[in-house]
């Protein structure tokens, strides 16, 4: 009797474990494919630290007057702003767009776009472009 129960327990347990392991449909935010060759930092780094880069960039540019191209918000938007069916850019802080979808998913607010533009300048080339931050 006890052995039967143990077997049943182990079987159901391993079945459950198997189910959990095979299911890998990733839920969560989906963002439009970015243009450009590659990001200015590795993806893993960007996911964790993009806010620090942007804040550092803000302080360096706004308070100390140091203007560089790396980590420029304009650069982010040039690659990550998607075009709608009408061929016009969709603002990056629209629902389900590059910035907003993840920020909505985790309830993180952005205050970048109360000042900064949410679409690239018309005619701006994505990769290696000269962003004037």
């Amino acid at each position: 009797m006890t052995t039967h129960r143990t077997t049943a327990f182990l079987l159901s347990g391993s079945l459950f474990l198997g189910l959990a392991l095979t299911a890998n449909a990733l839920s969560g935010p989906k963002i439009p494919q970015a243009r450009g060759e590659k990001c200015v930092e590795p993806v893993e780094m960007m996911r964790r630290n993009h806010m620090e880069f942007l804040k550092h960039k803000r302080d360096a540019t706004m308070r100390w007057g140091i203007r560089t191209e790396k980590h420029s918000l304009v650069g982010c938007i040039e690659c990550h702003a998607a075009k709608g069916e009408d061929g016009k850019y969709i603002p990056v802080n629209d629902p389900d767009q590059a910035c907003r979808s993840c920020h909505d998913y985790t309830a993180v607010t952005m205050d970048c776009f109360s000042c900064h533009a949410t679409v690239p300048k018309e005619g701006a080339a994505p990769a290696g472009s000269k962003g004037d931050s």
């Binding site: 189910l19 299911a23 890998n24 839920s27 969560g28 993840c102």
Partner: peptide, 16 residues
């Protein structure tokens, strides 16, 4: 974002 995918995976029995 991955952490939330992990926790949501835990509570929906769809491990991430």
């Amino acid at each position: 974002v991955s952490v939330k995918q992990f926790t949501m995976g835990l509570i929906t029995f769809d491990w991430q």
